[in-house]
């Protein structure tokens, strides 16, 4: 018994490496959720999307430049999520970009941009879907960004090093997204544990990789692009 447990423990990293599921495949696919759940999640998203939309509207009214900038940021989020990111075990997957987006543009704008990006991913790449848009927006454009933003502000207030705050916000925001996805699936079909182990546990190496990547991006931006980041202040 004991030996078999050890065997399983030693196999775990290998299994993690093999099972690391491409993040593009991590959006809940079209038609996977029953209609009541699909529309239920859409309804949950409505207040967040409306709030985000109104805040964008206000900013655009004050500073027309913000519209084009926001659109650039949305396109950046799409491109980011389409890039392959290396993990420690050699397999590749896609980042969610949740942490980076939130720290740069704030959580409310990220919700609206996330909605548009997810719509494009559903229509152009068939990652996710129209009926499951609500569920995907909730996990990727609402929970993820708010977890990232909360952690980032909290850690910064607590006086943590900026790199640590960025890493934690990006890695845990990514992970929170997938935990929510597995809960959304488990709530409908039961068997939470297996969903969590397939959709969240396997994402741990990816979450770490995304955290590291976000730190690298921030270091470069801090070093070379402070001036340009000031343009973001209008958002």
């Amino acid at each position: 018994m004991k030996r078999s447990v050890w065997k399983i423990c030693s196999l775990l990293p290998l299994a993690l490496a093999l099972l690391t599921v491409p993040a593009g495949a991590m959006h809940i696919a079209e038609g996977y959720l029953p209609v009541p759940w699909a529309f239920g999640w859409m309804a949950v998203c409505v207040p967040f999307v409306v709030a985000g939309f109104l805040s964008i509207k206000k900013k655009v009214a004050l500073e027309p430049r913000a519209k084009v900038l926001l659109a650039m940021c949305g396109a950046f989020a799409f491109v980011l999520s389409a890039l392959k990111i290396p993990t420690m075990f050699g397999s590749c997957s896609h980042p969610t970009g949740v942490g980076l987006g939130t720290i740069l543009f704030g959580p409310t704008a990220t919700t609206v941009l996330g909605l548009i990006v997810l719509l494009f991913q559903a229509l152009l790449l068939a990652h996710g879907g129209l009926t499951t848009l609500g569920a995907n927006v909730f996990s990727m454009a609402i929970v993820g960004p708010f977890v990232s933003f909360g952690l980032y502000t909290l850690l910064k207030k607590a006086g943590a090093k900026p790199a640590l705050a960025v890493f934690a916000a990006a890695a845990l925001g990514d992970l929170a997204t997938y935990v929510v996805t597995s809960i959304q699936l488990g709530v409908v079909y039961g068997n939470y544990l297996e969903y969590l182990s397939i959709f969240a546990l396997t994402q741990i190496p990816l979450a770490i990789a995304e955290g590291l990547l976000t730190v690298v991006v921030f270091n470069v931006l801090e070093k070379y692009a402070k001036e340009d980041l000031r343009a973001l202040a209008v958002l």
């Binding site: 027309p64 430049r65 084009v68 900038l69 659109a71 650039m72 940021c73 396109a75 950046f76 491109v79 980011l80 890039l83 990111i85 290396p86 980076l100 740069l104 990789a209 590291l212 990547l213 730190v215 690298v216 991006v217 270091n219 470069v220 931006l221 070379y224 692009a225 340009d228 343009a231 973001l232």
Partner: peptide, 23 residues
């Protein structure tokens, strides 16, 4: 990691500047 980080930040900064020019 280094390469991808540089790529992303370069694309980001360029997209900001491009947004400005487009406007």
């Amino acid at each position: 990691m280094q390469a991808l980080g540089t790529l992303l930040s370069t694309v980001f900064v360029r997209s900001l500047r491009r947004g400005d020019r487009v406007f």
